[in-house]
């Protein structure tokens, strides 16, 4: 395969991946979520490297299947999908566009200053902004929300409960 051919194939694959959405956060493409780590095209093979958000994320199997189907539709059945664990995914890899899309969808995006939980009990939680009324007067209801990657919060001003995509 010539260099230009492999460049075209790489671009085609990235374009396909941009159109695949996280099944649990259906406004966010897997590229904006930061789980596509690389697309490698060489003489022998082409493969996509993906990494899970959380170790047990059940969406990964669905995402892998959706990538496979989208590739098949474009006649790219030979592209291999590999899962890697290291380096571990972090919310810092969610794109700026992705964070805006999360907020518009009603999920508070991870705070821009990366603050990761420690093992210390009752440590003060970061101030999380309500995605509906934009108040910072909110409280954590549970560190674990509707999916492993989200925590459950409630706004003290508009009283709406909401998901927070927690820093990780």
């Amino acid at each position: 395969m010539s260099t230009s051919q492999s460049n075209i194939l790489t671009t085609t694959i990235w374009n396909i991946l941009h159109d695949i959405y996280d099944p649990e956060v259906p406004v966010l493409s897997i590229v904006d979520l930061g789980i596509v780590r690389d697309v490698v095209v060489n003489d022998e093979a082409a493969f996509i490297l993906i990494t899970p958000t959380y170790t047990g994320c059940p969406a990964m199997d669905v995402i892998r299947m959706n990538i496979k189907m989208a590739l098949l539709e474009k006649g790219l059945g030979n592209v291999e999908i590999k899962t890697i664990l290291s380096p571990a995914w972090t919310t810092d890899w969610i794109s700026e566009k992705g964070k805006q899309q999360l907020k518009a969808f009603g999920i508070a995006p991870p705070n821009s200053t990366h603050s990761v939980c420690t093992i210390d009990a009752f440590a003060a939680d970061e101030a999380v902004q309500c995605p509906r009324c934009l108040s910072f007067n909110t409280k954590a209801i549970s560190r674990f929300g509707s999916t492993a990657c989200k925590a459950l919060y409630q706004c003290n001003d508009c009283h709406e409960p909401f998901d927070y995509f927690k820093c990780h």
């Binding site: 899970p52 959380y54 170790t55 890697i84 664990l85 290291s86 380096p87 571990a88 995914w89 990761v116 939980c117 420690t118 093992i119 210390d120 009990a121 009752f122 440590a123 560190r143 674990f144 492993a148 990780h168």
Partner: peptide
């Protein structure tokens, strides 16, 4: 490297488990 990668990935999650469970013990 395989065990190291699994541990590195899981450590972030286990941190939550320790915090959550210790808060309830208290």
């Amino acid at each position: 490297e395989h065990l190291a990668a699994i541990a590195q990935k899981a450590l972030k999650e286990v941190t939550y488990h320790v915090r959550w469970s210790s808060e309830w013990v208290i």
